[in-house]
Design a protein around this nucleic acid. Structure first.
Lengths: 227, 227
DNA sequence: CGGCAAGCCGCAGTAATGTTCTCACCATGG
DNA sequence: CCATGGTGAGAACATTACTGCGGCTTGCCG
């Protein structure tokens, strides 16, 4: 990593290389400190959410809990929204990893999709997991309507997992004819997550993980028609 | 309607019947006036939403637009939430009626479900109908997480329609074996509405009405297995 | 017609909360 | 050892939902 020849490319302003390196060294220490502070804000926010089971905490609470200052908070985050977004993206990619690990335990491609669908349904339902994952109910919904692009980014890891699983199905000729893996991945993922959201809203007949799997896999019509 | 014998039942306080009737006559005029005021608030709110394409208006805006007073607003509504809820319930039952009329134009039970699914999808997508129906994106999502019981009430008309259509399918033996009409109705309705919500979030490959119908009807697996 | 009760209005005021500003401080690096 | 920039503490600001109060209008009743 001594790309002196490349320096001109990265210093179009005419700064000498040594100066850049010196500045960078200073910068990196500061960066570490900054990252640590950000970490503390993140941890504090997560702890508060775990306690209150909602994203309706105040910025002040996070600041107090993290033993830092409001001033510092706004130096590291563009606002409360950015904080929540960071936590949400993190939670989503962690969940995607967990689900991927779960899928890996199954040998049959169809079983892989099944366990992922059922587990995603469980961790997405508000009544059971709101306390542990308020981001999935509260924040995800608001993000979907107010910042769909950011939602798409946050969903990417999970969507990738579903796409892989669907492609496996495709290769094993287990996908319905004329059905694209990409579309099926998005449709299934969203169907599972959102139906989980409104489970418990269904008065006396809450939907179960088995039912949602059955539905996604087979639809509701007889096994032949559709025109 | 001269149920004098029944009066004691409705006047346990001992008030004479004539007085009750007189009071009621006075009351009804006041009631009409009150309803008219409520109507004006409702209309103003709807107009503002149509212009701004969001539910993020202030109560003050509604008050100004309706040429009434803030004080009066809170005399007729418990708060902004109640206003939105009223508009939402109204929009939902109107949409349910429109969809029911649309279904009636089809003779085949499966076609009835299909047109309803496809049209519900279209009117629920945020990109096209946000301007006309911000309640369906904005408010519905928030209501789902913050007041699921109210959401259930608001959804009831639409759910009833889906249930009827599903029961028709059941009677015509077009429903998959071991599949309940009630569950299918809820699952399908929510799947359609929510997937519409996130359509357009799908970068370059937005889901279409045909695809969602295909998915709901048939799922993604081959036409035989599931174990 | 005169008065009264109810409703309505305008306006100021409260509360909650996200965000920014002021200013002193201090720690880090040169 | 000093200059710079991040930090802390708190005040200040902005927005918004909501409420209290006093006065005015309106419609009703005797």
């Amino acid at each position: 990593m001594a790309p002196e020849a490349d320096q001109p490319l990265s210093t179009p302003t005419g700064e000498p290389a040594w100066k850049q390196r010196a500045v960078e060294r200073s910068t990196q220490a500061a960066k570490r400190r900054a990252e640590q502070r950000v970490e503390r804000f993140l941890d504090a926010a997560q702890a508060i959410m775990a306690e209150k089971g909602t994203t309706d905490f105040t910025v002040q609470e996070v600041v107090d809990r993290s033993k830092q200052s409001l001033r510092s908070f706004y130096q590291h985050f563009d606002g409360k929204h950015e904080l929540l977004l960071a936590l949400f993206e993190d939670a989503m990619s962690k969940s995607a990893e967990e689900l991927r690990a779960l899928a890996a335990q199954q040998s049959d491609p169809l079983d892989r999709v099944r366990v992922v669908v059922q587990e995603l349904f469980e961790i997405s339902r508000p009544d059971l997991s709101a306390r542990q994952r308020p981001l999935f109910s509260d924040f995800a919904m608001r993000l979907l309507v107010s910042h769909p692009a950011e939602m798409r980014v946050a969903n990417a890891p999970l969507l990738a997992l579903f796409t892989e699983l669907m492609e496996e199905l495709e290769e094993a000729d287990l996908l319905r004819s004329g059905f694209t893996a990409r579309r099926g991945a998005a449709l299934t993922m969203q169907t599972v997550m959102f139906n989980a959201q409104s489970s418990g809203q269904e008065g006396a007949h809450p939907i179960t993980a088995e039912e949602i799997w059955d539905y996604c896999a087979n639809g509701f019509t007889m096994d032949a028609p559709t025109s």
